[in-house]
């Protein structure tokens, strides 16, 4: 399935390149604004581009069923950096400039994450920030110590 998707991706990128060179396809390739609040993403950018959906799919069961609230791959974590509560003006997933929407619109991907989940980081009253949570810190440190290959295997549940 994955390799099939990759082939499809390669084909799509080929079409996009062909479109650019021949003067058709005036749609700009999205380049979402990177947050300035963190030095780096939880994974290298090229890994996130290809794997973020697998990270999130795996993490959602870990959180809902196993109660793991300290995962480094959490949608809340994405939004805390990429669409923080302090962002002005407020950007929604429906807006084309939303961090997630920019690429999903370009690739024609329809997701329903934000029908339930908050599409922006929100300060929760009475809640501690994620970085105040010992479990989250410990998990982050453990995973940072792993190699990239180990982390990918971990997030795929292997």
């Amino acid at each position: 399935m994955r390799s099939w998707l990759l082939v499809l991706l390669f084909c799509c990128s080929g079409i996009a390149t062909a479109g650019e060179s021949s003067g058709f396809g005036q749609i700009a390739i999205p380049s979402p604004v990177k947050p300035t609040t963190a030095d780096s993403c939880v994974e290298p950018v090229e890994v996130m581009r290809r794997e973020h959906m697998h990270f999130l799919l795996h993490q959602r069961d870990e959180t809902v069923i196993d109660g793991d609230r300290g995962s480094r791959h959490s949608l809340t974590g994405c939004m805390d950096c990429h669409n923080p509560a302090t962002a002005e003006p407020v950007v929604r997933y429906e807006d084309p400039e939303h961090f997630c929407a920019e690429c999903h619109a370009y690739t024609g991907v329809k997701i329903d994450c934000f029908e339930c989940h908050a599409d922006r980081g929100l300060e929760q009253t009475g809640q501690s920030r994620r970085d105040d949570q010992p479990a989250w810190r410990a998990e982050r440190n453990r995973l940072t110590a792993m190699s990239l290959q180990q982390r990918l295997e971990h997030s795929r549940g292997e």
Binding site: E115, L122, Q124
Partner: peptide, 25 residues
């Protein structure tokens, strides 16, 4: 404008979670 600790949306059932996000923390 759902809260990050309580995702909820149309077409699903919901109920008391015993504040599971606090329990896990």
């Amino acid at each position: 404008d759902q809260l990050p600790v309580a995702p909820r949306g149309k077409g699903t059932v919901e109920s008391c979670t015993l504040c599971v996000h606090r329990v896990d923390r």
